[in-house]
Amino acid sequence: MGEIYVVAEHRKGEVREITFEMLFKARELCRTFSHRLTALLLAGKDAGFADDLAKRADRVLVFENDRLETFNSDLHKEILNRVIQKDQPFMTWIAHTSWGMDLAPALSVKTGLPLATDCVDIQAEDGRPIVIRQIYSGKLFSRVSFKESPGYLMTVRSGAFLPPDDAEMEPGEVLKQDIPADLAEPRKTFVEFVDTGAGEIDITQADLLVSIGRGIGEEENIATIRELADRMGATLSCSRPVVDKNWLPKFHQVGTSGKSVRPKVYLALGISGAFQHVAGITGAGTVIAVNKDRKAPIFRVADYGVADDLFKVANALKEKLAGA
């Protein structure tokens, strides 16, 4: 095991959370094997992120240039290739994001170094890295080794390594680097960012869904649950009867005639678990059901169940969250 280089990702003037996650994990590994941790920052002039990164790495190599203001795979690849060829780090980590997915494979071909993508864990064994990845839509995990090589590339899943709040340390040094003079013009030019988050809610993208069924009883009661969802940072979804009654718009509906969802947690309140509904939550990580009927079929598919009145549970949750 040797040095680790972590490529920082930033967008619109902010370092992306994944960068800190990678630095946190990389530092842990570097500490164990007492190696140096380097952050690589390719950014526009005076981006000012370097100090932030320095708090989490032994040193930061900074390449500043107006052309690097936003990510460009051609430029990143050229610059990183030269850094890697020169410094020969043991591992180079890149975020498994849209940009990282555009960069890492190309860099792997360019440098000739093997690549493993979307790693959820990274270890080193006998001087070679071993990574854990999810395959088959996360239904299985795999342990992956590499062909012997002077260095290794990996992209890292966001959320895989969560740094504690006090992850900062003694600031490392910030070293400004020169941009290679012979950089070719990139073949891709940035036009604009478009915000797509606004508009209708997409329940398929949510990590936490609070889903209501006919057990909600009356339209007025939806406000209570909406409040709970907001407090939990969750998205509201529902079963079909709620849509049929026009209590919520159609895009909230989960099930065969609605949407298939795959949140990390699905909290079903007052949903009986009809087949057409349950078919829409097979992709959910964890299903928690609250239903006053202990025999409700939803408990057959749920991971956790609460056989109680949903409003009692909802109010208790709200209180707990307000207290916390």
């Binding site: 792997s108 795999s142 707990k320």
Partner: peptide, 28 residues
């Protein structure tokens, strides 16, 4: 090949609902 799968394994199994009992506050 540059990489090799050494092993695949299943995530921990889940079976039916584990019922959480108790008063509302502790359930929450």
């Amino acid at each position: 090949p540059r990489t090799r799968i050494e092993e695949v394994f299943l995530p921990p199994e889940t079976t039916g609902a584990e019922m959480i009992e108790g008063d509302a506050a502790s359930v929450a």
